[in-house]
Structure formats: C-alpha cells, structure tokens
C-alpha cells in the first residue's frame, strides 16, 4: 500500500462532516453576534495595550532615560524584548514550516494560528528597537530610502542588516500567512 493511499484513509476530522458544515462552522465565528465573554477579554487586552501606548508616549516625551539604560550598558530591557518577541515569532514559523515539510495534512487547522502569531510577534519585536533609539522620529534613516541629507545608510553596520533581516522576515511571514489564508478569504 502506498503512503498516499494510507494518508487518504486516515480520518482527519471525526463525524464525517460535509464541506458545507465546516464552512458554516467557520463562518459562524465571524458572522454571529459577538459574545459578552469575548468583549470582556478584548477589553482587558485593550486596557493592557493602553498601558503600552501610555508608556510609549511618556518615553517619546521624556527621552529614553526611562528605559533605565546607561553608559556602558547602552542596551537593556528594550533589546531583551526584541529578542524575546523574535523568538516567539520563530516558534510560529517553526511549527508551521515543520508541519508543512513533513506533509502533515492536518496542519491547516493550526497553521493560520501559528503564522498569525509570527506576524504579530514580529510586529512587537520591531516595536522595541524602534522606540529604544534616542530619536525615534528619525528611524527611517536606517533604511536606504531618500532622506533630506542625501545620505546612504552605513552598510557595514550590523544594525542595518538587522533591519533588513527582520523586515524580510516580516514580509515573508505575511506572504506565508496570506497564501494559507486564501481559502478562508474565499469562504468568507
């Protein structure tokens, strides 16, 4: 018996559902009325987000003194956060990619989740180096886009390559996510 045939026989979803029942089930999540529990949890999450926004506002207003860094410890919690969130992002990519490479057909149930985690984790990761610099409003100077000084960035700097690497990672993750999302978008 070939591997293909064996895989086809395996029951991935119990209860023998039709395509329509699954479509119905998935669409109900987004199309039905939002439950109170969901709103409550969303409210809690948003209030935590407000803490972040307030802190970032204070940071931009006062200066990066509030990170508690000094000379010679120029980097601290900000860069720790960056590495932490990149790690979380890598976990999402790893889960999704490993399952894909091993051709696990049941991965479709979790790959959207894992890849979304990657994207949002990378966004969090990008946030921290952006707000740890002394003059965050000039951050675009690290990218090779035209600026008022007519100056290229310093291509010898590993930090520039960090920006490229994380940017590329974000773009690829977004595409990876989008490709998996196409059937869902079609359904909705």
């Amino acid at each position: 018996m070939s591997v293909e045939a064996k895989v086809h026989k395996e029951i991935l979803i119990e209860g023998n559902p039709q395509f329509s029942t699954i479509t119905e089930k998935i669409s109900r999540i987004v199309e039905s009325k939002t439950t109170k529990v969901w709103l409550l949890l969303f409210g809690a999450a948003v209030s935590l987000l407000l803490v972040l926004l307030g802190s970032v506002g204070y940071l931009l207003w006062e200066g990066i003194d509030i990170w508690g860094n000094n000379i010679p410890s120029g980097w601290g919690f900000d860069i720790v956060n960056f590495v932490f969130w990149v790690g979380i992002g890598h976990a999402g990519t790893l889960i999704s990619a490993i399952l894909f490479l091993f051709r696990q057909r049941w991965r479709t149930s979790i790959n959207r989740f894992a890849e979304a985690m990657t994207i949002f984790a990378v966004m969090c990761a990008l946030l921290f180096p952006s707000i740890h610099v002394g003059r965050a409003w000039l951050l675009h100077w690290v990218m090779p886009i035209p600026n008022q000084m007519g100056l290229w960035p310093n291509f010898r700097s590993p930090l520039l390559w960090d920006a490229f690497a994380v940017g590329t990672y974000f773009a690829c993750s977004l595409m990876f996510w989008y490709v998996g999302l196409i059937p869902d978008l079609a359904t909705l």
Binding site: E62, I71, G74, W75, V133, G134, V142
Partner: peptide, 25 residues
C-alpha cells in the same frame, strides 16, 4: 549630531567607553 538617531550601538562597541549619551534634554 544631525545624523545621529541614538541607537547607542557606537557606545556598546567602544572598548574605551568614552561615548556619552543625552538620555534627557
């Protein structure tokens, strides 16, 4: 100074630790 965005990478990489950063105005 006009180009500096304050990554503090230079200070991290300086073995003499002689660079100073304006944490405040």
């Amino acid at each position: 100074y006009n180009r500096c965005i304050g990554t503090r990478y230079c200070s991290n990489n300086c073995p003499y630790k002689v660079r100073r950063f304006n944490f405040f105005n």
